[in-house]
Design a binder for these strands. Structure first.
Lengths: 327, 327
DNA sequence: GTGAAAGCGCTAACAC
DNA sequence: GTGTTAGCGCTTTCAC
């Protein structure tokens, strides 16, 4: 930077300003600095800038895994929104392990990230306390506060419990009473199952067969799990899959068996991934606005970081049961 | 840090050492420092550390999009490998735009990342030059050097051209002569098409129908594109899809039409995603070791960063045509 | 095994 | 509009 200053015939600060606040510099000076930057191939050291300004322009996000379209689409939108606001995304994967999440948070705090995006709101009391003490803006995603857990700071999500309830209601409305659930061994999936079971019970349906796959729950788990459910209870007529990809796997399994969907068995998905619109039959599903969630998370952070208080610190983006041909 | 030093009754350097090189500190001193850290809730500022040591312990990766299972699984493995080596991953998405890639590289260089992972090897001469000048370790992925492009530094990939050739050969071996291709408007997809066409031509097949989808190529594009191909050439008997998800879309389209696969039309996928093993019929596909690619990229960087020269700076991980039931 | 001194490359605050 | 001064919180080097 001092080389640039010397070549341009100005001081260090002026170079700094020419780069960071160009309109506070005279046009001629600006041109001279830019020429020098170009000539020398100068690349400003953002690390030094971060240290001096106490702002890193980095936001970190922690997801269970990026290899799940459901999360990757949220992250994609988040990264895009942040990039447009001049922030970079540092990515952490917890692998659904709470311990790893805590470790990641430590590292990220050490890097003095300007904001943090978390998945879910089941963080441990210790972690919540640490985050509050650190004073970093935090956005939790993919869930609403599930009592007794209050939001750590900001939040954008939907009720997984209610989504599970709506799924059950959708199937029961269509006359199904022998219900099954295929999901993952994971907080949000369990909440949906809880809601699913609650509504079933309210309709006098006590026996809801369920299969919980240890993450990652891949599409090729779906067929075998359906088979296991049917082995226990051959008369099942409707299955709620916690992910459209799993639902597609179930559809393929039905093709294999020569079963009609929804004639022999109805299939309800979750997410409204592109596969739901491409499947045959078209998949009924619980639509989640994943990209919108990432965008909201990014915008909440940007608003906070630019000193504006948005007011809306808790957004329920809801969900929607989309009825297509599979139920 | 000076608070910790005071409480522990040692100097700043000792605190630094206790944290970064614990075995170079006497056990008692170490215990005292750790107690002080704990008591004060001290979180070391890694930004300051980076500035002083000139190592950020951050590696950046640029992919076209994270919302494509093909890339996200590579990134997942990369992030995991790096994390195990004490490095974090900074993520950039180029959206398949070369300009965005260059901008991202600038920012990452500004952050003094310790390494860079790029997708493909079609970077512009200007970008290649800049990276070489910067002296950062770079790993290119997902391709072999396509002349005249030499590797920038290290590389792990496979030949997309050869993969396309193998795909054509696979279909031709099974008696197909009316071939079609569904892919994306994107470098690697185009290379595969080129190889596909070359082998077809060598067998006297001049008319290969193709549909190139503007990214992101989603599964729900597959059906309509297949329809367009068939509108132009109804007698097509085999289609090579550049992604297993697209292939699954084609399978669903065939279910819709009541067509037998491979009886009426054979379908060959790409990637060997989980969906290939779950589809009905099971999908023949070109297997790419995506996770392995991410792991290799991470290990090459770690080796370089730890001062070891691995020797192997160019890895061809190859591909494999997996024959299942759809061809 | 531990410490004192000297930066790393920038920006904040204030002066002019 | 531009410059001077004083750090940001660590690590490095070299003594001891």
């Amino acid at each position: 930077m001092s080389d640039v200053a010397r070549v341009a015939g100005v001081s260090l600060v002026t170079v700094s300003r020419a780069i960071n606040e160009p309109d506070k510099v005279a046009p001629d000076t600006l041109a001279a600095v830019r020429a020098a930057v170009e000539q020398l191939g100068y690349v400003p050291n953002l690390t030094a800038g971060s240290l001096a300004s106490n702002r890193s322009r980095i936001v970190a996000a922690i997801v269970p895994t990026i290899s799940n379209l459901v999360f990757s689409e949220t992250i994609e939108a988040l990264a895009q929104t942040l990039a447009d606001g001049g922030y970079q995304l540092l990515l952490g994967q917890s692998g659904y392990r709470a311990g790893d999440e805590a470790t990641l948070v430590d590292t990220f705090l050490g890097r003095r990230v300007d904001g943090l995006v978390l998945t879910g709101n089941a963080q441990s009391p210790a972690l919540r306390a640490k985050l509050k003490r650190a004073g970093v803006p935090v956005v939790q995603t993919w869930d609403l506060p599930t009592p007794p857990n209050a939001p750590i700071d900001m939040l954008v999500g939907f009720s997984n419990l209610e989504a599970g309830k709506a799924a059950a209601q959708h199937l029961i409305d269509r006359g199904h009473r022998a219900l099954a659930f295929i999901g993952a061994e994971e907080d949000r999936s369990r909440l949906r199952l809880e809601g699913f079971r609650a509504v079933a019970a309210a309709h006098g349906i006590g026996d809801v067969q369920s299969e919980l796959i240890r993450p990652p729950a891949l599409i090729d788990d779906a067929g075998p799990r359906l088979a296991q459910i049917l082995a226990r209870r051959p008369d099942v007529t409707a299955v709620f899959c916690n992910n459209d990809l799993l639902a597609a796997g179930v559809l393929f399994e039905c093709v294999q068996r020569g079963w009609q969907v929804p004639g022999r068995i109805a299939v309800l998905g979750f997410g409204d991934l592109a596969v739901a619109r491409a499947a045959s039959p078209r998949l009924s599903t619980v639509l989640i606005r994943r990209a919108e969630m990432g965008e909201h998370a990014g915008q909440m952070l940007l608003a906070r970081l630019s000193g504006q208080s948005t007011g809306a610190d808790l957004i329920d983006i809801g969900f929607e049961v989309v009825t297509r041909a599979s139920t």
